[in-house]
Design a binder for these strands. Sequence first.
DNA 1: ACAATAGTGTCTATGAGACATTATTGC
DNA 2: GCAATAATGTCTCATAGACACTATTGT
Lengths: 230, 230
Amino acid sequence: MEEYPPFAVTVDLVVLTVREEELKILLVRRGVPPYEGRWALPGGFVRIDEDLPAAAARELAEETGIREPAPHLEQLGTYGEPRRDPRQRVVTVAYLALLPNLSIPEAGSDAAEAQWRSVTRVAADRLAFDHHKIVTDGVDRARSKLEYTSLATAFCPPEFTIAQLREVYEIVWGRELDARNFHRKVTGTVDFVEWTGRSTEGGPGRPARLFRAGGAAVLHPPMLRQRADN
Amino acid sequence: MEEYPPFAVTVDLVVLTVREEELKILLVRRGVPPYEGRWALPGGFVRIDEDLPAAAARELAEETGIREPAPHLEQLGTYGEPRRDPRQRVVTVAYLALLPNLSIPEAGSDAAEAQWRSVTRVAADRLAFDHHKIVTDGVDRARSKLEYTSLATAFCPPEFTIAQLREVYEIVWGRELDARNFHRKVTGTVDFVEWTGRSTEGGPGRPARLFRAGGAAVLHPPMLRQRADN
DNA sequence: ACAATAGTGTCTATGAGACATTATTGC
DNA sequence: GCAATAATGTCTCATAGACACTATTGT
């Protein structure tokens, strides 16, 4: 094999959850230059014998402690602009992780500080490297995948009510949905959700049925967002 | 910065076009081990000061001669399984390129042999490395993006008829579409296509109006594929 | 006139969205 | 009973799909 240029390869994580009625992203504060003190995506080097999804899962576990149940983790894209890291040529493979609102760490293991930050205010955080672009891509991906996949269930606990699922849509899309139409739509889409046989108890009002994620990955028909031209 | 493992980074191209009433992919025959003699995706090393999309565009130009008009080129995904290349650790960033049916080379510059191969028969080609998986992902991406984006126009020449556009859909999806409903749908979707003011001439039957791609990237409403459950 | 292809119109079923109504709980 | 929340039903409009029809060319 001919000579080839050496690259560093990292994984970076866009970890999203819904909490406090906002879409939040997990960011860590950098403790070393460059961009010391700035917020950045959690991530790190891929090991020489490690698969990319394994590296992403490892970093996620290190930052959040989450291993089970397997969170949603998908490749988002790869960012390799030559000067994105001032020190050397680094190509980073970004992964998108979606988590339910767990009471997971306000601080990760190998980061000075970790925090859930509102995605709507992340622009003001002046993130390190090209992480702002990666965050934008991740949030866009999540928003659009809610339309045609059952991804919203990844933001919910193992058992959830239709109202909880609707809240996920409303917060991620930043738009209110009609509760009655939403209910009809979700329960009418094959394998989107599956009734557990149980219901909530104790609260005010009629108990809500508890569902789990159904087998469907892709929704037919999709949950269409209202468009400007409608 | 701490020690980091060195990786080789390459770009690989899934170049698709529609010709001879089939969806075709550009493959090159490997002239050296490993996988000598096998079909593989065109691609090569990313240069140390080269951006990833630039590397993809360069490889595409080297293999096809295509530079203008700018073909559709999007990042498909990154493949980095530790032993995908038996020689060393190679992470490859795959790009998806869609081209109109140009009379472009049956042989590229730096490949022993290049050929348009039917995607439906590519499984029998026993591709090198993990390229079969990359091809599958690229074809899936193209199929699904035809639904909700104006990507089909990337398979067409700068000016095309509605029938040509429909043929692209039919071939990529492997399914016949009603010509009349398709026409109504396409012309009724804002900014999908734009009439040039001209029409075809010389052939049998009523002349067809010539269109160019409109400004729309995303289609509202989408061109829905028929589903099994419909 | 006729074949061939392009383009429009009509009908029906389905689904989205607006919104009324009923159901089931706690207090 | 009343408040609160869940779940279902009704109506209207838009659109997909099936398919009849009209338009415009070459021969």
